[in-house]
């Protein structure tokens, strides 16, 4: 019996996934599709932290809080956490992203250009600490990176990049809900930089996909492509999951005044609009762009 168990353990036991086995959707997509070579994107422009943007935040799903000496907010799914309103189904599809060149992931590059451009000493120090964490993530030291990023946030809580990499680290640790929380937080500070914003939302899509929330994932990929049409991960994800998107509500037929017995127009037929009849207008955007950033650095007292 013992020998049998031992043999099964050695030769027959299923391989358990380790952290380094994680193959994000991006990698899967590259195997399946033949894509043009990526072209390097422009160096990201430094953004002041916390700048507002036009998109609404993604939908984080909170994790249960740990009880402690000081009562922490509970994470009961029914009431204790923020559950944002459902994203309306009629989000327009990203416009013609297929012709946009593929962009390299901005988060793979060093943060040095950002560090050099910022004139804010605490943000600079926080970004340098974030850069340390970026390298730790690249070396698969995710716990170390989380600790380093905690320090980065402590130095400057407005450093949106630190939150982005916290999301990355938790994603690699497969804590997808926590990753979503931090990506969502990062979104608020990165929405003046389309490449970073697109990448952040793209990773949100990856988290949703891992959680089995395909519709949310598809919507996130869609939003990511609206910001960064060249984002490969979002493209691949959108390609996989577009079918999961809610279908638009069919428009009711308008009967013709003179030809009531005419059959409805075929798909791709050009509809001739009689004079005086208003043209169809596209549906409004989900959220209007907000005003420009107000998260400027106040002068020290």
């Amino acid at each position: 019996m013992a020998i049998a168990i031992g043999c099964w353990t050695i030769f027959g036991a299923p391989r358990t996934a380790a952290a380094h086995d994680y193959a994000p959707p991006l990698a899967i997509a590259l195997e399946e599709e033949s894509l043009p070579a990526a072209t390097a994107s422009a160096a990201p422009s430094p953004s002041s932290s916390g700048s507002p943007g036009a998109t609404s935040p993604a939908t984080p799903t909170p994790t249960a809080a740990t009880p402690s000496q000081t009562p922490a907010p509970t994470a009961d799914s029914s009431s204790a956490t923020y559950q944002p309103p459902a994203v309306p189904a009629d989000v327009p599809p990203p416009s013609d992203f297929s012709t946009s060149p593929i962009a390299a992931p901005v988060s793979g590059a060093s943060l040095e250009p950002l560090i050099e451009k910022t004139g804010d000493p605490s943000l600079s120090a926080s970004l340098r600490t974030t850069e340390e964490a970026r390298n730790e993530i690249a070396d698969n030291h995710f716990d170390e990176a989380i600790r380093t990023l905690g320090r980065a946030v402590s130095i400057d809580s407005g450093n949106a990049y630190a939150y982005f990499y916290l999301g990355r680290a938790y994603l690699m640790k497969k804590d997808y809900n926590q990753a979503l929380t931090f990506f969502s937080r990062a979104e608020m500070g990165l929405n003046s930089d389309p490449a970073w914003l697109g990448e952040t939302i793209g990773f949100e899509g990856a988290c949703y996909e891992e959680l089995g929330r395909e519709q949310d994932a598809a919507l996130a990929y869609q939003r990511a492509l609206q910001s960064a049409p060249g984002n490969l991960m979002a493209r691949a994800g959108y390609g996989r999951l577009a079918a999961a998107l809610p279908q638009p509500t069919p428009v009711e037929e308008q009967p013709s005044a003179d030809n009531s017995d005419q059959s409805p127009p075929e798909e791709n037929d050009i509809r001739i609009v009689p004079d005086g009849e208003p043209l169809d207008t596209p549906p409004p955007d989900e959220a209007a762009p907000s005003s420009s950033s107000t998260n400027h650095r106040s002068s020290p007292q």
Binding site: G50, P52, G53, T55, P57, E187, M188, S290, N295
Partner: peptide
């Protein structure tokens, strides 16, 4: 650092 409160998207 003397930060302002960040205005989130969807707020005017």
């Amino acid at each position: 650092p003397a930060l302002d409160f960040a205005v989130p998207p969807g707020i005017t």
